[in-house]
């Protein structure tokens, strides 16, 4: 095995361990971990199967194999960013509903206290 291959595999394993730790500690929800697990899976495949990238690039008609990596990675990043925007929008909606609910409850409690005094 070549040095770079070993390096990628080791880094990949460390990355995988880190993701697992985050999930176990409850800092990363499983649905967001999926995409990272898939990433490590692909990196793992190509660190073992060195010729794989060339084979796939040739199959798809891409002349320079690294271009395939960049194209694929950038596309995946865009999709994931879009997904995160959706998540943020959802959170914002939920926060709005919660804030409004809290404001209504605070007012209701105050009104009840005033009634009790009277």
């Amino acid at each position: 095995m070549v040095r770079i291959q070993l390096l990628t595999i080791v880094v990949n394993i460390l990355f995988l361990v880190y993701i697992f730790r985050l999930i176990i500690k409850g800092k990363l929800r499983e649905e967001y971990a999926i995409v990272w697990l898939i990433c490590t899976f692909f990196i793992m495949i190509f660190s073992f199967w060195r010729r794989g990238l060339d084979v796939i690039a040739h199959f798809l008609g891409v002349f320079e194999a690294p271009n395939l990596v960049f194209t694929g990675a950038i596309f995946a990043i865009f999709i994931y960013l879009l997904h995160l925007s959706v998540v943020a929008s959802n959170l914002q909606n939920n926060i709005r509903k919660l804030s409004q609910e809290i404001a209504h409850l605070k007012l209701a409690i105050e009104n009840r206290e005033i009634e009790n005094i009277q």
Binding site: I95, R96, S99, Q100, I102, A103, H104, K106, L107, E110
Partner: peptide, 13 residues
């Protein structure tokens, strides 16, 4: 009557 929002929601909220 006072509705006191715990977070800034913007005029619409």
């Amino acid at each position: 009557l006072v509705l006191d929002l715990p977070m800034n929601l913007g005029i619409g909220g």
